[in-house]
Design a protein around this nucleic acid. Structure first.
Length: 489
RNA sequence: CGGGGUGUAGCUCAGCCCGGUUAGAGCGCUACGUUCGGGACGUAGAGGCCGGUGGUUCGAAUCCACUCACCCCGACCA
């Protein structure tokens, strides 16, 4: 069984690839850099999407949809934004094909677009161009819009979920009357992301602000949630940007304030992507396969009958019905797998590999004893339980799994977090992986040097924790507070 | 975009150096039987333009040229 999956200790990257493919989450498509998200993977993404969407709505946001194609000239409006994305844009240059005797079908050279269309790598430009028409008065603000969409970034190297040329995400784009409102929105959504990561993904995250070199192209400040994966590498799981008035100025979005004066609006944008799937996988899964937190598992409980004869299966099915009903009544999603073309052992392995949080097995012995065997995926423990009050016990078990996963991930992060004060110490520590808190003089030069010499980047300047000043571990210059270094995905 | 590698059955690969009937293995798939509480076993079967094009040759999976695709490692990035 376990021989179909590379061990994490042997080759973590290979383990990840094997897992994604063999747990049926996604596969490489024939199209370079693009993946096919398979039903099991997509079902998890849908759970994430629904949970996040609910949190966005609860904070006053509404959904809308903007075009996939952005006129090339829009990108020229905001200087740093163009610079950030120019190198990875797919561009539509023609709008028609024609048949060709030799090649079958070719681009019709006659059908060249007057102005090329950029396939959105992100939507700030088209959205701000649109907002110009929506915002006239302070009474139109705040404007709190989100969109669920696909975006394209022409990446050199891709990895399933972590970096693909096309990916799914949500991007919130908000407009505000004051700087303070926009800043509050930025932080509000950062908190939403952090809460989602911890309560749903069961993944502890650190909230922080990015250094200038890691900042989103066009932002004044980029805030992020950073998580630590099992191999000691950090993963940026979500970002929330305070855009200042940059896009409002670039697209001339002004409103009339209460004093009848014209002002540029203040903006934010924030997003999380299918990369969260990678974060989820790498946070909890083990050498036996995928491990899913119950709140994101497409199916929380699978029931496997064990029978030798059709009569036995019928008897088991009858016994199982009230169990299924009582679980459903508690809002627990459950699947009864009475497929007789697979054997129980095969099913056990399969559901374990795919990360189903709880498995209930019921066989002839259980029929006699009024029991079932309950196995939990996170610890692989099994116990035999009386059927009485089973649903209630399962409900508690699911909660226990959810919190156990979070606790384990938190403990793992703490074990792989340390503070260092000297550069030699840092170099040694970074080889061990994990998050390293160290003092930095705040200059881009020092940051670049550290990256060059150690491949570690500043993941963020944490918002909470030790904020006492010190001296830069590299230059000895004054440092306002410790920042977090790590090698990152 | 640089460096490396791989294309042969649904999957993983052998065969290629040293050209020679009908191209192999394991897994998976199909049928039947025995099985069924942790990925069972036996028997029988199906499945291939050997990535593509062009060359060399009596003869090419095998040699040569070109080409396409994908993977891995770097630089860039959510």
């Amino acid at each position: 069984m376990s021989d179909i999956l590379t061990k994490r200790a042997d080759d973590y990257a290979q383990w990840y690839n094997d897992l994604v493919l063999k747990a049926d989450l996604a596969e490489h498509s024939e199209v370079r850099g693009c993946m096919v998200i398979k039903p099991h993977g997509y079902a998890i993404w849908e759970k994430m999407r629904d949970a996040l969407d609910g949190m966005f709505k609860a904070t006053g946001h509404v959904n809308a949809y903007f075009p996939l194609f952005i006129p090339r000239s829009y990108f020229a409006r905001e200087a740093s934004h163009v610079e950030g994305f120019a190198k990875e844009c797919a561009v539509v240059t023609h709008y028609r094909l024609k048949s060709d005797p030799e090649k079958g079908i070719v681009v019709d050279p006659e059908a060249k677009l007057e102005e090329e269309l950029v396939v959105r790598p992100t939507s700030e430009t088209i959205i701000w161009n649109t907002y110009k028409g929506w915002i006239k008065s302070y009474r139109d603000l705040p404007l709190l819009v989100n969109q669920w969409a696909n975006v394209v970034r022409w990446e050199m190297r891709t990895r399933l979920f972590l970096r693909t040329a096309e990916f799914l995400w949500q991007e919130g784009h908000t407009a505000h009357a004051t700087k303070q409102d926009a800043e509050e929105e930025t932080m509000r959504m950062l908190d939403v992301y952090a809460r989602f990561a911890e309560e749903w993904l069961a993944m502890p995250v650190i909230k922080g602000v990015k250094t200038e070199s890691e900042r989103f192209a066009g932002a004044e400040d980029t805030y992020c949630i950073e998580a630590l994966m099992q191999d000691g590498k950090a993963l940026q799981a979500g970002t929330s940007h305070f855009l200042g008035q940059n896009f409002a100025k670039a697209f001339d979005v002004v409103f009339t304030n209460r004093e009848n004066r014209q002002e540029h609006v203040w903006a934010t944008s924030w997003g999380v992507s299918t990369r969260l799937m990678g974060a989820l996988i790498m946070t909890h899964s083990d050498d036996h396969g995928l491990v899913l937190p119950p709140k994101l598992a497409p199916v929380q409980v699978v029931v496997v009958p064990i029978s030798k004869t059709p009569e036995q299966l019928a008897a088991i099915t009858e016994r199982v019905q009230p169990i299924l009903r009582s679980l459903s009544e508690r809002g627990i999603t459950v699947k009864y797998d009475d497929d007789d073309t697979r054997k129980p052992g095969w099913k056990f392995a399969e559901y374990e590999f795919k990360g189903f949080p709880v498995r209930i097995a019921i066989g002839p012995r259980d029929l006699e004893n009024g029991t079932v065997e309950v196995a939990r995926r996170d610890t692989l423990e099994k116990e035999t339980l009386q059927v009485t009050d089973l649903a209630e016990k399962i409900e508690h078990l699911l909660q226990a799994i959810q919190s156990n996963l979070y606790e384990k991930a938190l403990q793992s992060r703490e074990e792989h977090t340390r503070a260092v004060d000297t550069y030699p110490e840092f170099k040694e520590a970074i080889e061990q992986g994990g998050l390293i808190y160290a003092h930095w003089d705040g200059t881009e030069a020092t940051e670049a040097r550290i990256k060059e010499e150690t491949k570690a980047t500043i993941r963020c300047i944490p918002l909470k924790g030790d904020t006492s000043p010190g001296k830069c571990m590299v230059t000895g210059a004054p440092s306002a507070q410790r920042v977090i270094f790590a090698r990152a995905y």
